[in-house]
Computed example of a mutant assay.
Amino acid sequence: MPVHNKLVRDRIPEIIEATGKKYSTRLLSDKEYIDELKKKSFEELQEYVETDNKEDAIEELADVLEIMHALAEYHGSSIEEVEEVRRSKAAKRGGFKEKIYLIEVEDE
């Protein structure tokens, strides 16, 4: 039986069970959960980086967003609060739409 040892979406055991395959799971402690969410965020972002078409990119960005929802909830917040902070930072410092690449800044 292949060993995965990773955080999976909530319905994955149900989906596996529907195939008739045997599997094992366990519930994570809070510390393990946040550690695994952080690992999963890198995994999903790497999958996005490796895409080469719009459809795959959107699929992977949806996975990244799902992780962001879980992380916000873990920290006692919501994606709406995260979005509010994002908007505030964009108003103060801008976003990334203008494609500005900083080369250097003079030292004092």
Rank of each mutant, 00 (worst) to 15 (best):
P2N: 11
V3M: 08
N5I: 12
K6L: 12
V8A: 07
V8T: 09
V8R: 00
R9L: 09
R9V: 09
D10Q: 03
D10E: 11
D10Y: 00
D10P: 00
R11K: 07
I12V: 15
P13A: 08
I15W: 11
I15M: 14
I15H: 07
I16H: 03
I16L: 10
E17W: 00
A18D: 14
T19Y: 11
K21Y: 12
S24K: 15
S24Y: 06
T25R: 05
T25K: 07
R26Y: 14
R26K: 15
L28Y: 12
L28F: 11
S29V: 02
K31E: 08
Y33H: 11
Y33S: 03
I34T: 13
E36M: 07
E36A: 14
L37S: 05
L37R: 02
K38S: 11
S41G: 01
S41D: 02
E43M: 04
E43A: 06
E44P: 13
E44I: 01
E44D: 09
L45H: 01
Q46L: 06
E47T: 02
E47Y: 00
Y48W: 08
V49M: 14
V49Y: 06
V49A: 11
V49C: 09
E50P: 02
D52A: 02
N53Q: 04
N53S: 11
E55Y: 01
D56L: 09
D56C: 04
A57Y: 05
I58M: 14
E60I: 15
A62D: 08
A62M: 09
D63P: 13
E66Y: 06
I67P: 06
M68D: 02
M68G: 05
M68S: 10
H69E: 15
H69L: 03
A70C: 06
A70W: 04
A70N: 04
L71H: 01
A72D: 07
E73D: 11
Y74R: 02
H75S: 05
H75C: 11
G76E: 04
G76P: 01
S77F: 01
S77R: 08
S77Y: 01
S78M: 09
S78G: 10
I79G: 02
V82T: 09
E83K: 15
E83Q: 15
E84G: 10
V85A: 15
S88G: 07
S88K: 14
K89N: 13
K89S: 08
A90I: 14
A90H: 07
A90F: 03
A91V: 03
K92S: 15
K92N: 10
K92T: 14
R93Q: 03
R93T: 01
R93M: 05
G94H: 13
G95R: 08
F96S: 15
E98K: 12
K99C: 06
K99T: 05
Y101T: 12
L102D: 02
I103G: 13
I103F: 04
I103P: 01
V105H: 10
E106N: 13
E106H: 04
E108W: 14
